[in-house]
Nucleic acid binder design. Structure first.
Lengths: 222, 222
DNA sequence: TATTTATCAAACTAATCGGTCTATTAAATA
DNA sequence: TATTTAATAGACCGATTAGTTTGATAAATA
């Protein structure tokens, strides 16, 4: 603490020797992440071997363990990569002012279905896949998965609050609770769609959810 | 075809040599199934090794491969065992005439939560677990998982029809669709409860589902 | 140029995987 | 009793696993 200016980021500090490339510039690393996302969304963490990812990405053991200290560490980075990708997708819908809030949510749902259809419903959600494997995953990975889901939920809740402000849904609904409900069930729908290799479960769940949103609580019999 | 009376069941036909025990009497087999259910509901098919199950059940390789021709074959039998266990549990609630149909469903849900709590929310649903692994499971196993889910759905739908007949929920609801919605989302809730190691996701989903059932479709705005 | 570190290639390792094989004992029939 | 099959034990096998090590080359600084 009394030392002067500790190195804040090693990337920035000048060293002797060859400098580390910026993460965006690390081609092999990006290839590994990309291949990892493909394989882990289709299968899972344990079912996919490092060798398989090496083969798919055209890299080698040396490269892999240069960039990641272990397979679990690679998994953590995959979660972050997926989170970034997914948060961007959610924002592109939920912040789209040309659509009503409820239509933004519908847009996201349709988008997700299209995405699954593109891969013949063989790939699911990385977070759902890894969540199922929590018993064999490091604790840090599990808690990160929970955080990611909560992030998606809060983004969804914000969209629902907007829907309330614009009179699309009742203000008496608990937006946070509805968003939580959505993500609990949506992961189930993705799992089922993957199992049955068809979009029907996604549609069935979405239909039910929008019906639920259409309720005015004081009209219901609780 | 022109031969007389082909042996219909080998179990029944008299052989020379030691007779095969009735399945119910095969102690080691039952121990293997029991251990398999414990481990596979907590983790999954790929994550659990045969050796682990041998150790937990106090048997050996010889015994395992005497009773099951492969690990996948063992998995199939686990699905059947789980299906039997679960169908009995569903029936014990859904056919309980001392409760209203909707209270039967609530009873099942509470029962499921108690069951998960008993194991500190570490064990989930075998069908959900294996469903997530469908990419690495034999096709026969996948289609059986779908059938089992559909069986649970149809039992649930029958309970909802009864609720309609007794005026607990609107007759305009599509009972089959509601049952499908329930099982799509419920598997998601079990997954989430296991990930977070708490009952909240189960309760949140159940709350939403019962609210949905309370709707009279012609009152909703679609 | 000499040194240092980053990046990558691939042989290698110890452990574990599902599954096979051989041997032994148990329980039935002829 | 001799024979046949069921049931169990556990050594063994080839393949695969995550991870290590060694060595080569690239790119920077001093």
């Amino acid at each position: 603490m009394t030392q002067n200016s500790p190195p804040e980021k090693q990337n920035v500090v000048k060293h002797r020797g060859r400098p580390r490339k910026a993460p965006d510039d690390q081609v092999a690393r990006k290839q590994l992440i990309k291949a990892g996302l493909v394989y882990l969304t289709e299968r899972g963490f344990s079912d996919v071997s490092v060798d398989e990812i090496l083969k798919a990405s055209g890299t080698t053991k040396g490269t892999f363990y240069h960039h990641f200290k272990s397979k679990a560490d690679f998994g953590q980075d995959l979660i972050e990569a997926y989170h970034s990708y997914f948060a961007a997708k959610l924002m592109s819908w939920f912040d789209n002012d040309t659509l009503s809030p409820l239509h933004r949510l519908r847009g996201f749902i349709k988008d997700a279905e299209t995405g699954m259809a593109k891969h013949d419903f063989r790939r699911g959600c990385l977070v759902g896949n890894l969540g199922q494997e929590m018993a064999v995953l490091p604790d840090a990975m599990c808690s990160r998965l929970i955080e990611v889901l909560q992030d998606w939920q809060s983004r969804t809740a914000a969209c629902l609050v907007l829907a309330q402000q614009q009179g699309e849904i009742s203000c008496e609904l608990d937006a946070a609770a509805m968003a939580e409900f959505f993500w609990i069930g949506w992961e189930g729908a993705v799992l089922r769609a993957k199992l049955e290799r068809k979009p029907d479960p996604l549609r069935r769940f979405a239909d039910g959810f929008f019906t639920l949103l259409s309720i005015s609580p004081h009209q219901s019999q609780g």
